[in-house]
Design a protein around this nucleic acid. Structure first.
Lengths: 213, 213
DNA sequence: TGTACATCAGTGAACGCGCGTTCACTGATGTAC
DNA sequence: TGTACATCAGTGAACGCGCGTTCACTGATGTAC
């Protein structure tokens, strides 16, 4: 029962607990039937509360959804950081972590990398957390032997972007992203079902093709 | 005004026209705000009809949605066939056609290759049209020089599937599919916005890497 | 330790809305003689 | 060509439901003296 922060009043602690449970139920609903299945009233009913009670914790459905998106990206960045902290922050390590993270909750993955969420406006220009994720991938790309990689460095990135990272690393990062997303998103959507092969092997193959050939 | 079939009674013609208009409006709604925005009552209102009138044409929302999905896959297979008929049915030709088709109506693309549609049950085991699309890609893959291609043939496909196509061609087809989908779906979802590069170039690069690199 | 007050979680009813779907019915269009 | 009947598109009202959200209120918990 080791307390987190001594400054935290019990009421505040309770408040955070309830907020957390609401988000947890919301995650479950989305995981089960997609973003459009997220219903404040259903969450309230599950928790034995009236629907109105939730407005003590969130200004509305939009804020709840926003937080879920933010939590998702935070979760991924935490995962990546943990991997990097273990000294496995190369492309292979990140890729394996990404796949495990995605499989653990497919809808959470689509929250970040899927088609735009119906009513939701994505803070326009997207969060710093998202670019931090990209940053971790980018630094892993630096380690990749440039010429050995067959990733198209050809990309003609805008000059304005060239200060952010060497164009070659950016190219590798993009290909890392798109190829893995290609396999992962189709797998998560169930489009490989009944095709008689193991998506993990395809994922591996794409991954090894990135740095070696 | 050249009539299609002489056997068609005027009433039947009218019926087909209205059915077509309903589907057209449905497509517009989905294109504008995603599958969950599809509303029979809104369509009826747009057409100056009562909501109940639509049940003369479709048994319900599900049937309408099913037809839209089927139409989408038919549209893609038609596009691919047209390309093949022009003698451009190689991987490059198909890829360009696919991208154009997807950009013309992103939601239609996601209807086929996106995350599963909320309420919709996909005829389980999916349509012959979908596998016909795969078939066209597969035959294009036969033309790819096997050893020159760096696509992972390694895939260890189930033995049971090896009668359908040579394992090498199947491997190439899979990689064709997943890589292009990776770029395309992220582009269509707007995840490249503000990143300062042209998705078309990335698409091209991935494509050329398929058969040559 | 006890009392007076403020804070705040949660209630329950209501609002307005839109949804898919049904049903009995009207009225126009087509068909048979 | 004209009349009798069947077909079928479309209406309008209703059903039941669930949604997000607001509002005035109750009752328990915390704080100040």
């Amino acid at each position: 029962m080791s307390d987190a922060a001594a400054t935290t009043t019990p009421r505040e602690r309770y408040r955070q607990q309830v907020r957390a449970e609401i988000k947890e139920r919301a995650r479950e609903q989305i995981a089960a039937a997609g973003t459009s299945a997220l219903s404040l009233n259903k969450i309230a009913k599950e928790m034995g509360l009236s629907g109105a009670a939730l407005y003590r914790y969130f200004t509305g459905r939009d804020e709840l959804l926003s937080e879920l998106v933010q939590d998702a990206s935070q979760s991924l960045v935490d995962t990546f950081r943990a991997v990097a902290g273990r000294g496995e922050g190369d492309l292979d390590g990140l890729a394996q972590a990404l796949r495990a993270w995605a499989l653990a909750d497919p809808q959470r993955y689509f929250l970040l990398y899927g088609p735009p969420v119906p009513g939701y406006r994505g803070t326009a220009g997207l969060t710093s957390t998202m670019s931090e994720i990209m940053g971790l991938v980018l630094s892993a790309c630096d380690a990749v032997p440039r010429e050995a990689s067959r990733a198209p460095v050809v990309l003609h990135l805008d000059r304005s972007r060239e200060d952010l990272a060497p164009a070659s690393a950016l190219g590798v990062a993009l290909v890392f992203w798109t190829r893995l997303h290609g396999v992962l998103s189709l797998e998560l959507s169930g489009h490989f079902l009944g095709m008689g092969f193991d998506p993990a092997l395809l994922y591996e193959a794409e991954l090894s093709g990135l740095s070696s050939g």
